[in-house]
Structure formats: C-alpha cells, structure tokens
Design a protein around this nucleic acid. Structure first.
Lengths: 214, 214
DNA sequence: GACGACATACCGACTGGTTGGTATGCACGC
DNA sequence: GCGTGCATACCAACCAGTCGGTATGTCGTC
C-alpha cells in the first residue's frame, strides 16, 4: 500500500520527515498553497532529497494519505471503546472518542484526506482515490459494529450499516469545515452531540435509564 | 455589503463575469490552484480589467462569497417549501429541496464558501470571515422555523435551535466532501436522508400516519 | 454647443519573485 | 565500484500585481 517497496519510513528519515511536514502543512494551508520548497524547509531537508524520494508533488500526497490511514487505523484500533461488550456502546464510544479528539488548534484535529480531496478531486484523480480509500476504509471499521447492533436492537427507519457509517464521516468532515469557518471546535462538538443523539434514537434501547448528555 | 459603492454588478459586465468565473472555477479547483490569468481567460476579460475592479485576488474571493450569499438567499427565499403551514414541514421541505439540488457534476452543487474556507481559514482571515458569514447567515434562516417547531412539538433531548440549524449545514458540507471523494452525489443523498430522519425523530409528531420515505 | 477637466472602464506589456521539476555531484556503506 | 541517500545549482513556466496608455463618457461653464 506504501509507494516505496518496503520500509515503514520512520519519522527520523528524510522521507518520514517530509511526510510529517506534508501532513501538518496541508492541514493548515491546503495542497496548492503549499510549495515543495516550503515542505523541504519544514522537514529540514533539501529539494534534492524531496525528488529523490518522490517523483512529484502529487506522489507525496498519496504516500502521506496512505500513511495517514495506517496511523489513524492504529490509533482507533487501540482505543478503549473497542473493549465494550455492546456494539451500540462501541459506536457511541467511537463518537465520544472523536469528540474528545477535538482539542488544540483546528489544523491539529482535522482530517488530511478530507481537506485535500476538496482541492484535488477534479485535477488529481489518483490523490482523490487515495483520499476516498482513506475515508471509506475508516468508515468500514465502523460498519461491523453497526451491523451487529442492527441485529440486537429494534430499528427506526430503513437504512444500511454502510450508509450510517458513511454518515458519521459526513458529519465529522462537515464539522471540520464549520470549525475552520468559525475558528473553533465548539460547533464540531455540538454536531457530534447531534449525531450521537441520532444514533441513540435509531437504535431503540430496550430499557434502562434515560439519556442525559449535552 | 458589496465591495463596490452601488451597482449590483450584473453578469454582463467585466466585474460580473469575473465573479461568475471565480465562483465556478474555485468550486472545481480550489482557490490557490486558480490563477488570476485563468480567471480572466474564463471571464473573457483582460488582467487590466481584473485589477481595475479588484485590488487583489483575495478581494474577489470576498466579493464572490458576498454575491454567493445574496444569490442563495434569494434562491431559498422563493423556494416553495416556505408556503407550508407547519414549521416542521418547512424544515423537512428545506432538506428535500437541498436533496433535489444534488444534480449534475459535483462542482455545480457544492458550496463556494465551504470549499474555500478549508484553504484559506488560516491564511486569509477576511475571506474566512466572509465564508463564515455566508454559512452562518444561511443557517440563521432555518433557525426561526426550528424555534417555531420546538414550541409545537414534544422534543427529544436538550438542544438549541441554533445548534440544529448549524448541524444541518455540517451535514451538507460534509456530504459535499464525501461526494467529491467518491465522485458522485449518492453519498450526499443518503446523508441528507439520515439528517431528515434525525429531524423527524427529534420532533415527536403528535399523531397521523407513520413515516415512510427512503 | 463647444471646451477643458476629470472619472470610469478597460487594455496588454512588463516585472520580480516563486513554482515544480531536473541535472549533476558526492559521500558512504556493501 | 556501485547503488542508495542525499546536496547544490539551475531552469523554464508561471505567478500576482504594476504601469502607462486609450476610449468613452459626463460634468460645469462660458
């Protein structure tokens, strides 16, 4: 899946540092506004190193998105909500986890793939595909829990596990945009609250206490 | 609110044509990847005309977003769902209207402000503000109907009219991103369906038939 | 109704800096 | 002695923005 044959490209190497610099810079300024020179400066490497490791600017984008997917897969895989018994609790746990991630500057909690795909979807088809795979792949990790919860609970309305999984990503991506527009994460938090409430309403809980939560 | 003293800058004039070209091009390729020369070529005017009407590239962005707001305000203001008696029906009518707008190429139904703010939120504060005002202003037009519906129906969960209005925009903006990533509007439609179902669940309808709808 | 003074709308050549990308060189490990 | 991993120097294309100029009004005033 990585563009280089083997090597996980550690952050210490020039390649890894370029990937890091790309990821953080694109989330701040976007793809087109970020120049190769700037990337090299931030990574502390020269342009020669850049074009030694990547044949073009677009190819770093693909490599960075691939690595982004791997790192976020790992991050979510080891998150504590997976240990919950009830699949619905795991879904809600995922949303709580995402909400808790909304800390610090906007550029530090937003999604690389979502940010980049807006700019390049029409001009760089291969980058678009990589971003789609990243978002879709992440959504797919939710699908199993959703499908399992659909068997356990009485449902409201006809919908598929896939569409709900994608809907969670829609809300998150949209929340990032509003957070950028407003300059703060509060809107994003409120929207995740709405999404959480929606999920709770979709799966009619058999019994036990009411729902508090903002 | 317009950057020029009077004049609504009709589409026939150089200024209007530049605004049109800007709006369509940015939704395809983004802000940074669109050059002033390209804008002039698409508008069929010269660079001299461009810098006669706008002091900088960034200032077209602001003028274009302002015009975008005005035009979309007008579009939604004359939409038929406003004639419905029930405020909840108006909210659902708005969502149906938005869903029906998802036709043709992705670049033709996406939002200028949402697309642009991703790129410039950290680098062009004035453009960011204009985008925020555009999205926030549009959300505000929903708030009255939501507030009215909140008085008529029994509600599930604690939330404000403002947060739900913003949540609708979050879902729409996110739906546009996923549509760009996947290269089609289907995800966006499915997400609006989810949002519609959420709204129906939030406002507990007193009686009368069940809810069909996809 | 002719006159000059000034404004608006636009043209297109030009500039200095930046862009993505290339060509070449070199140090070091195997 | 040869590939890997860089560094330096360089390039043509392109970038946003400038500037001197023109064509077409539109005033006031005599």
């Amino acid at each position: 899946m990585n563009s280089h044959p083997n090597e996980p490209s550690p952050s210490g190497s020039a390649r890894g540092k370029l990937l890091d610099a790309f990821t953080t810079t694109i989330r701040e300024k976007g793809y087109a506004a970020t120049s190769v020179d700037e990337l090299c400066a931030k990574a502390g490497v020269t342009k020669g190193a850049f074009f030694h490791h990547f044949p073009s600017k677009g190819s770093v984008a693909i490599a960075a998105v691939d690595r982004w997917s791997e790192m976020s897969d790992a991050l979510f895989a080891r998150a504590p909500y997976h240990r919950l018994d009830d699949p619905l609790d795991r879904i809600l746990g995922y949303l709580d986890f995402r909400k808790a991630m909304l800390r610090g500057p906007v550029a530090e909690f937003t999604c690389l793939a979502g940010t980049m795909v807006q700019e390049v979807y029409a001009t760089h088809p291969d980058v678009r595909r990589a971003c789609d795979a990243s978002i879709g792949g992440h959504a797919a990790t939710l699908e199993a829990d959703i499908a399992e919860a659909m068997k356990l609970y009485r449902l409201r309305g006809p919908w598929t596990a896939e569409s709900l999984a994608l809907h969670t990503q829609v809300v998150l991506q949209g929340a990032f945009i509003l957070a950028k527009a407003k300059g703060g994460a509060e809107v994003a938090e409120a929207s995740i609250d709405h999404l959480r409430r929606y999920v709770e309403l979709l799966f009619a809980r058999p019994r036990t206490g009411g729902g508090r939560k903002s």
